[in-house]
């Protein structure tokens, strides 16, 4: 069954009155699809995925996530956020809570899960990202790569159907990028729908089902990674690739 889990129809968004950040976005994403979004900075990549869980509001068009249309209605937003996990460039872990408390927070307060069960689920996810031994530390005591893996585990604790990654490796030291990408690749094998804004072209080649290239608020080109990297059809994407891959 190849039904869309996320659909954008003629979506437009402005920041203020003049900055047209998303322009006529049409996009269908199937359940289980793994998508990498790339493009120059300011092209609207982050804004696009932040519209999916309503961290940003769009002004025109419709966005549907898992059958729910996103609108001002607060219950529709809550409904969608239950299905969508998100990982940020700056990790955004809660520094005043231990790693374990970061993970159990949403299960206990949002899903009203008993504490023991939430902790068990949290430890399960920490093992999945290979960081279980750090459960009682505070986030700032961990390295950047470890923090980002905790952030991934925290998002997974709610068992989302969709995972959004907003430049998850851009704030990391070079030696730590791989440990995060490894975890993301494993996740990709497990059938979860993934949207990832990243400049890691190696990751895109290895993992993505589809690469979306954006510039100036538009989707310029979307294709399989093989086609996109070897035969870009648009001159703008060709130009971008020559700069990214060139050295």
């Amino acid at each position: 069954m190849n039904q869309s889990i996320i659909s954008f129809e003629k979506v437009n968004k402005w920041y203020g009155n003049n900055y047209h950040v998303l322009r006529d976005i049409d996009l269908q994403i199937r359940t289980g699809e793994r998508i990498v979004i790339c493009g120059p900075s300011g092209s609207g990549k982050s804004t696009l995925i932040r519209c999916i869980n309503r961290l940003e509001e769009h002004q025109e068009g419709t966005i549907r996530v898992d059958g729910t249309e996103l609108s001002d209605d607060i219950s529709s937003i809550e409904q969608v956020r239950k299905q969508v996990g998100m990982v940020f460039q700056q990790f955004n872990l809660f520094p005043h809570l231990t790693v374990l408390e970061n993970l159990t927070l949403a299960p206990t307060w949002v899903m009203k899960m008993p504490k023991a069960e939430a902790q068990e689920r949290a430890m399960q996810q920490l093992k999945r990202v290979r960081i279980a031994e750090q459960a009682d530390k505070y986030p700032l005591q961990l390295s950047g790569g470890q923090q980002q893996r905790v952030a991934i585990a925290r998002a997974l604790c709610l068992r989302p159907k969709i995972m959004l990654f907003d430049e998850p490796t851009s704030a990391l030291d070079p030696e730590m990028i791989k440990e995060v990408l490894d975890v993301m690749s494993e996740l990709a094998q497990q059938g979860i729908t993934m949207l990832c804004v990243t400049h890691e072209m190696g990751f895109a080649k290895a993992v993505a089902d589809r690469v979306i290239f954006m510039d100036q608020g538009q989707i310029v080109e979307q294709n399989s990674p093989h086609e996109f990297f070897n035969n870009p059809v648009n001159e703008r994407s060709r130009d971008f690739l020559s700069k990214v891959i060139g050295h």
């Binding site: 239950k82 940020f88 955004n92 872990l93």
Partner: peptide, 10 residues
């Protein structure tokens, strides 16, 4: 911090 809490459904 608030965005992370929002995405977790708080």
């Amino acid at each position: 911090q608030v965005e992370a809490a929002n995405t977790l459904g708080l």
